[in-house]
Design a binder for these strands. Sequence first.
DNA 1: GCCAAAGCAAGAGCAGTGCTCTCGTTTTAG
DNA 2: CTAAAACGAGAGCACTGCTCTTGCTTTGGC
Lengths: 232, 232
Amino acid sequence: MTTVRGARERARIEITAAIKDEARRQLAEDGAAKLSLRAVARELGMVSSALYRYFPSRDDLLTALIIDAYDSVGAAAETAHADARVLGAPPRDRWLAVCIAVRAWALAHPHEYALIYGSPVPGYTAPEDTVVPASRVGNTLVAVVREAHAARRLVLPPLPAVLRREADRMTGEFAAGLPPEVTATLVACWAQLVGLISFEVFGQFNRVVEAREEFFVHSAAQLAHQVGIIAV
Amino acid sequence: MTTVRGARERARIEITAAIKDEARRQLAEDGAAKLSLRAVARELGMVSSALYRYFPSRDDLLTALIIDAYDSVGAAAETAHADARVLGAPPRDRWLAVCIAVRAWALAHPHEYALIYGSPVPGYTAPEDTVVPASRVGNTLVAVVREAHAARRLVLPPLPAVLRREADRMTGEFAAGLPPEVTATLVACWAQLVGLISFEVFGQFNRVVEAREEFFVHSAAQLAHQVGIIAV
DNA sequence: GCCAAAGCAAGAGCAGTGCTCTCGTTTTAG
DNA sequence: CTAAAACGAGAGCACTGCTCTTGCTTTGGC
């Protein structure tokens, strides 16, 4: 927490939060495309130009929402992992718990999910501020696999020679403590997990998959197996 | 081909195509969010209201582009499959060929890819006209697996009891001739494949995966294995 | 406590958007 | 040949993101 120096700074914090809240409300209702700065300002009883004191542009507001969304889904994954750990769940169940938590968050916040894992809306390059929150879910999966390795519940999948250097680099950069053999596989599984969730959230499973929950749990279990986490 | 009854109908066909071409150009340049009906009309030397004779709304134009994009990537997948088949490639290589073709198409047309596999832009419900083109890639994967089964190059993965009915239904609906044991797995692999491609196209692999090509081919091969296609 | 400086809300205004409606003109079909 | 349908052009509405100017309020250094 930063110290609040005066009434003005306190007001700024509150108004910034109010803007984001209202924007999130409109986002959840109509989607990112229809999010309007003027509508947000109108709903908050202020004039649109005043809003630019807090967010220099519409894209900056969206970026703030993106960061919050990353933090929100990241927190969901982390608490699911922590809960599974205090229950003494085996690695496979911890993996499943995280996957299920991410899916549940996505289904509960489809538009925020679309904001972070759908097509990038503002431009093409993600602002620097997003990379740390963006990696929270990934880091949680790394933690699960790391614990599985420590508990000797991990078999190392074979890794082709061409990916050996890549796996070493990845491991050093964001998966320290993980056997390099699994790092590349884990990244792939993470992308595949998001693919599964995206298909469900974005309606690609309409008329295709009906038993969504069972289908997802089974697929997530397959991913656990693929990354080397042994059953039970 | 429908018969062209007169000059007016011929003109309508040409103008409709010109509108879509120009719209696709602007889409490839600036993305779906910045696609403007007025800009398209301006570039074509017509007034914006005239464009509404051809597409009743911006969303309808986008829907037309979505259908074309589905057809485009579907055709890419089908030709890749056909080429691999005439070369006598084994099932695993046919699977890889289709995956690689879809990825190549996505990297070449990122905004069109975002249109179909990113967040749904217009509303939430996909128009009925999109479901047939949308299934072309999936059908190609079904065909690959079906051929693998016919060539006895397919091992049936175990399927949990909860998904048995679901797998039977899926098979009857869009995967006739496929052993029900693989249908559900195939659908999951299809979603996971799109997850891999989306992460790359949407920049989620920035600072994470560097050897993209090798990483993708290895992951796609893993998916082939997962769906039951045996190596070589 | 005073006062310049900075932060702030409000309003007007600009360029752009999707979309509608009207009005002549042209092409089609009976 | 004529009524009907399709068409292009233009004006106009309501909305958007964003900028600039104008006063007012809070802040921080003296």
